Deep mutational scan, measured.
Amino acid sequence: KSIMKVYCQICRKGDNEELLLLCDGCDKGCHTYCHRPKITTIPDGDWFCPACIAKA
């Protein structure tokens, strides 16, 4: 079994998992407080990182 360690693409830390959003496009993580602008609430439904939005 392989366990994927998810970490924030900005701060490179994997702590505060409850505030770590996973992109529905690329599965990369980003803390709500590292994202600019900050994300104050966990979004309902799908969330896409800035890189995936730029590709769309």
Rank of each mutant, 00 (worst) to 15 (best):
T40D: 08
Y33S: 09
Y33V: 05
F48M: 12
R12M: 10
K13Q: 07
D44L: 09
Y33R: 10
I3F: 03
C11G: 00
K55T: 15
L20N: 03
L19G: 10
G14Q: 13
K5F: 02
D46Q: 15
L20T: 08
E18N: 09
V6S: 13
E18Q: 10
I42R: 10
I42P: 11
E17I: 07
I3M: 08
P37L: 05
D44S: 11
D24V: 14
H31G: 02
C8L: 00
T32V: 10
D27W: 09
V6P: 06
P37A: 10
D46I: 03
A51P: 15
I3S: 10
Q9C: 08
C26P: 01
C30R: 12
R36P: 09
A51I: 06
C30D: 04
I39K: 07
I53H: 09
I3C: 07
K55E: 13
A54P: 14
C30G: 12
L21V: 06
R36N: 09
C30V: 09
K5R: 08
A54V: 10
D15N: 12
I39C: 13
K1W: 01
S2I: 14
C34W: 00
K13M: 13
T41K: 15
D44W: 05
I39R: 07
A56R: 15
D24S: 14
K1Q: 09
M4L: 06
I39W: 07
Y7T: 08
Y7M: 10
N16C: 09
C8G: 00
H31E: 01
C34N: 01
A51S: 12
T40I: 07
E18K: 14
K13N: 08
Q9R: 05
L21K: 12
D27A: 07
G29A: 10
C52F: 01
A51D: 13
P37C: 03
C34H: 04
D15A: 04
C49I: 00
I39E: 14
M4T: 10
L19E: 12
I3V: 09
H35G: 08
C49T: 00
I3P: 09
E17W: 08
V6E: 08
C8I: 00
A54I: 03
I39T: 07
C49Y: 00
G25W: 04
W47E: 03
I42G: 10
P50V: 13
L22F: 13
C11R: 00
V6L: 09
F48H: 11
I39L: 14
I39D: 05
N16A: 07
C34Q: 01
N16Q: 13
D46T: 08
A54T: 11
R36Y: 04
R36V: 14
Q9L: 08
G25A: 05
I10L: 13
K13P: 02
H31V: 01
N16R: 13
K55C: 06
G14F: 07
A56E: 15
D27N: 08
A51C: 07
Y33C: 03
L21C: 11
I10N: 15
P50A: 09
A54L: 14
W47D: 06
T41W: 05
K55Q: 05
Y33Q: 09
K5T: 10
C34L: 01
E17D: 11
K5A: 06
C8H: 00
Y7N: 14
C30P: 02
P43G: 12
G14T: 14
D46H: 07
C49A: 00
C52W: 00
L19P: 09
Q9K: 06
N16M: 06
R12H: 05
I3Y: 03
L21D: 02
C11S: 00
T41A: 07
C52D: 02
G29C: 13
L20I: 07
M4D: 13
L21T: 11
Y7D: 15
C26H: 00
V6W: 03
R12I: 13
T32K: 06
Q9E: 12
F48Q: 11
H35W: 05
